[in-house]
Write a protein that binds this DNA or RNA. Structure first.
Lengths: 217, 217
DNA sequence: CGACCTGTGTAACAATTGTCACGGAAGTCG
DNA sequence: CGACTTCCGTGACAATTGTTACACAGGTCG
């Protein structure tokens, strides 16, 4: 779909200069991706960088044996660092990006991503900020798995999910959680029960209500 | 210490254009850092980006309780992504960088790092390659801790150490390994003994000899 | 030599996490 | 309603990792 300057000004308020918005309107494409859609998969190349306007995308890592684990979420005005390196370095993706909530993205062709970097300092800043944020996301993830036990990890997992989907009743099965945390269903069930006894969540079929004070950024 | 073009041409063969080498010689500083020196610590700012010429630097992550864990090593011609984001985004460091083997670095003032990006495409490429490599390093680290058990992790830890210090007899105590892997000495002793029984290593006081076929990149 | 310090080995036990085996609850669909 | 599927709970047990406690080996230094 075609972009209008008006639209861009509304969603990117003050972030980019007018001339850049004009160019963005020229070459950018708006797309809507349904829940479950793959934005990219390991081994794939990508020829345009997506900027997420609204919705939520989860970035997963898989190993050879088919196990998977959640790395972090992308949300409003985030861009994917992996797509940047893929584009700029012509490299294959190392991760999977799956739409978690219906997501609207603007895609920008590689050449422009590169070209704008020198022409618009606001764009350069955006690109580096993206790298920095993803780097921080990965460090957070590492902290979790290295320094915390499963029950704590489960709780922060749920809390992040809550901020990602913006509601405190999650529609998710134990199986899915287990999958994203690279462990087994029984373990998750056990720990969830434990959290419920501790009054931090409430369990229902296919649903989990988070009662915790959700004091996350 | 001052830099000469000759020196730069020798160590950066073909990586950068001549004009960039001239500028590098102009503003860059060579420094030698002794084993154990901190190149950067969490919370610090940094005003110049170091490129590692020779030696080895380990990047560690710490949590609030003082525990630490090894993230990855930097070696020849690597640059630190964290120092880039610190400089370009004026952000505090999230990691610790400690000299593992005597290391020679060229430091480059922030302004130039930024300025050259538009002027020299080889430099831009270098910067993005740096981000990409560090990103990959972190993903590898995450793979290890999420998908592998301690004994496997210990083995790859030892192998990486071997490639980092370029010798197959490591001078290290069990305590130090435990520290870098964020576990306890007893656990490491136990697993090392197990690896020795399996014929993969040989243990001596303060030393570990790796007998494994070291088929690492 | 004897006191002392550091590094290693190891047994015993605790806690956490993973696996297997089931049974039952809730929902779907004929 | 009855068959069937999916999801959840749970007990029992195994494997892994963490902790405590202690013995001993090798080196240093007076």
């Amino acid at each position: 779909m075609k972009l209008t300057i008006d639209y861009l000004q509304r969603i990117l308020t003050g972030r980019f200069e007018y001339k850049l918005l004009e160019e963005l309107a020229e070459v950018g494409q708006v797309k809507t991706a349904p829940v479950g859609a793959y934005l990219i998969r390991p081994g794939e190349f990508i020829r345009s960088v997506p900027i997420i306007i609204s919705g939520s995308v989860k970035i997963m890592r898989s190993d050879k044996e088919g196990r998977e684990a959640l790395l972090y979420y992308l949300g409003g005005l985030d861009a994917c660092a992996m797509s940047l390196t893929c584009c700029l370095g012509n490299k294959q993706s190392e991760i999977t990006a799956i739409v978690e909530e219906v997501t609207e993205v603007i895609t920008i062709p590689v050449e422009k991503v590169d070209e704008w970097m020198c022409r618009y300092s606001s764009w350069k800043q955006f690109v580096f900020q993206t790298y920095q944020k993803r780097f921080d996301n990965l460090l957070e993830t590492i902290d979790e798995v290295i320094f915390h036990k499963l029950d704590e990890r489960l709780l922060t997992y749920l809390q992040k999910k809550v901020t990602s989907c913006q509601c405190d009743v999650l529609s998710i099965t134990h199986e899915e959680i287990a999958h994203e945390m690279a462990t087994s269903r029984e373990v998750i069930s056990r720990l969830l029960k434990q959290l419920e006894k501790g009054g931090q969540i409430k369990l229902m079929r296919n649903k989990i209500s988070i009662l915790q004070p959700t004091v996350l950024s």
